[in-house]
């Protein structure tokens, strides 16, 4: 219950902050409209604020709070992701501009066991943003990936061990 209240206040404060920034007005009337709207929207969304863990046989289902993220570790990760995004784009641009177009598209699956759904969301989004790979489907903890080239597929899911990006997201959430 206490956790729920904390999540609720975080969401309504974020919404209220957005209102202030986007409206740019600081008089009492606008602030009050913003505060009421933020509280009502957060109330409507309150059932989304807790997500249950990805089911793995033998482990009891846990509830995760959406805003309960490792923020300190998240920012270095975002910086790394931004740099990867630039590299990905240069790669794709080179492929597009190459007259022979040396691509070998393929669909493959790999498994990454994590119980927090938010971690899965971050990993899936990161995969879509970076070198030549798109997340096609995520079922429980099995990822279906479409890769543009052989090397992109191998960098994400090497023949032995696990790729750089799943390992990083795993470290991010200590799983």
């Amino acid at each position: 219950m206490r956790e729920k209240l904390i999540q609720y206040s975080i969401l309504s404060s974020i919404l209220f902050l957005f209102w202030v920034i986007f409206s740019g007005k600081l008089d009492v009337k606008h602030l009050m409209i913003g505060a009421v709207t933020a509280l009502v929207i957060a109330w409507i969304c309150s059932s989304f604020l807790q997500v249950s863990s990805v089911t793995t046989p033998g482990i009891p289902v846990k509830e995760y709070a959406v805003f309960n993220l490792p923020y300190l570790k998240l920012f270095p990760y975002l910086g790394w992701l931004l740099w990867e995004l630039v590299k990905a784009n240069v790669d794709v641009a080179l492929l597009v501009l190459n007259p022979q177009m040396p691509i070998s598209p393929q669909i493959f699956t790999f498994k990454k066991t994590m119980s927090n759904p938010v971690a899965h969301m971050i990993l899936a989004n990161s995969i879509t943003l970076t070198p030549g790979t798109i997340t096609v489907d995520v079922q429980e903890d099995v990822y279906t990936i479409h890769a543009l080239t052989e090397s992109a597929a191998l960098s994400l899911a090497p023949l032995a061990g696990e790729g750089d990006m799943p390992a990083r997201v795993g470290r991010l959430f200590n799983e």
């Binding site: 794709v92 641009a93 501009l97 669909i107």
Partner: peptide
């Protein structure tokens, strides 16, 4: 935009559109 025209199928075109 060039990639969307040049790539051979739906998925590869998504690569160009999504990232570019």
């Amino acid at each position: 935009a060039l990639g969307v025209i040049r790539f051979p199928d739906f998925y590869t075109r998504l690569h160009a559109a999504g990232k570019g």
